[in-house]
Nucleic acid binder design. Structure first.
Lengths: 187, 187
DNA sequence: CGCGCGATTGAGTAATTTCAAATCTAGTGG
DNA sequence: CCACTAGATTTGAAATTACTCAATCGCGCG
């Protein structure tokens, strides 16, 4: 799994063996089973997670206990409650395993240390943040410009593997429609 | 206006006079009148804009020529077609002045030079990217969890000055509802 | 076989859109 | 000061879309 992380980082910045050893020393590994919470609303010490294997959902629970899906995350993706991580406040969302999952994670202290001692990693995280922002803005634009059916078709097209691994009710919670409405869409 | 930019940057990283002179040498200034396009869908050489004064909308035009508002931008904000800027492709959106506006802008080449020669500016842009991402994700979450009325009230509460400067029809195009629906909301 | 979960279907209700018309408002010229 | 106009907003009514609640269906698994 460490090899996965290195390969992943080296898609953006090149690393010497020593540099990667340093990076690796700042990450820890953990495995979770389907259904487990990696973190839960209200937790402190938010961390940043790199997913080696598995499938997760980042959810926000409303007053009626309905889970709104802010995002899915799978192999080679990063996920966290980003605001909680970066500002070191309590999390407002939860990260839940939809499959058995292996993650590498970094604490905020180690993240700061990493950026200070290895500025090229700041470049790496900057690029990740850019693409995260671009993706979020595209999702906003798509909800503005498209109806439910089009957004569902786009989801199927864009993440074909994801869709096969996730119950449709979860896709509805991501798209922001009821599962009945999703079920009635004639494709 | 240069003073504004310096003050703005120094909220995140401190600068020497020499450093700021260097930064400033990489930016150019330009003024626009209400109604003018700073850039338009299909333009090349996307730039990154810092708004010294004025008010802008970032819009995407659909097949029916309806303008969807991806975001507003005002004093002390950065705005651009971020994907077009970062990947140096043609813009897919347009940036339009809702008031007379003064901007400082940086080209992609100068942006790269700036980050390479002054790594602390990479830290600055990283922080901007983080907060941009967090804001976008919050907007997504708000559309998932709230009805139209709540989203409009949130907008009024969060950007009270903006709301006074923008026609309601534009707020509707930002929220993703028709202007008639917005008009019928009893607050 | 039967349980449990997810998906679908039905029926009534609520929210939003669309198109059209009426109203309001700020700025202009006489 | 008033009439006029353009743009913005509001209102009305019908059509569409989505939601809710309830019932049913389908299927893998012990």
């Amino acid at each position: 799994m460490s090899k996965t992380l290195r390969t992943h980082i080296e898609k953006i910045v090149n690393l010497t063996d020593q540099e990667f050893d340093f990076i690796n020393s700042l990450f820890a590994q953990k495995s979770y089973k389907k259904g487990q919470y990696i973190f839960q609303e209200g937790d402190n010490f938010a961390k940043h997670y790199f997913i080696g294997k598995g499938l997760l959902k980042l959810v926000f629970m409303d007053n009626d206990m309905y889970e709104h899906i802010v995002g899915f995350a799978m192999e080679d993706w990063w996920e966290s409650d980003f605001e909680a991580f970066y500002t070191q406040q309590k999390t407002t969302m939860s990260l839940i395993c939809l499959e058995n999952t292996d993650v590498s994670y970094i604490t905020y202290e180690n993240y700061i240390k990493l950026c200070n001692e290895l500025p090229k990693m700041e470049r790496f995280f900057l690029e990740k943040a850019y693409y995260g922002f671009i993706a979020a803005q595209k999702r906003i634009l798509f909800t503005l410009t498209s109806n439910t059916k089009e957004r569902y078709q786009q989801l199927l097209k864009r993440y074909p593997t994801l869709v096969q691994r996730v119950p449709k009710s979860q896709l509805a919670a991501y798209l922001g429609v009821s599962r009945e409405t999703l079920s009635r869409l004639a494709l």
